[in-house]
């Protein structure tokens, strides 16, 4: 219901973005539920920050109980 309301309300660029976003989102959800797509933002960040994280982690672990 909200979806139809939104489609009606927005014009031009915004409508294109909206419909595109919803379709992409729908595909993403379907794939994610079927565990076919692994778009893991958290993993991504972990990979990128690994060089900085590792020394920090080992330093932190020293102080943990």
């Amino acid at each position: 219901m909200l979806f139809v309301y939104d489609v009606k309300r927005y014009r031009g660029q915004e409508r294109k973005f909206f419909i595109g976003g919803v379709i992409l989102g729908a595909i993403y959800v379907t794939l994610a539920l079927n565990e076919e797509l692994d778009l893991n933002f958290v993993d991504l960040i972990q990979q990128v920050l690994k060089p900085i994280v590792d020394p920090l982690e080992s330093w932190l672990i020293k102080y943990q109980l």
């Binding site: 919803v22 992409l24 989102g25 692994d38 778009l39 958290v42």
Partner: peptide, 14 residues
């Protein structure tokens, strides 16, 4: 709406 859909998909898999 698109953001909520994305967030849902990411939340349950990430």
């Amino acid at each position: 709406i698109p953001l909520t859909i994305f967030a849902f998909a990411s939340a349950i898999t990430n």
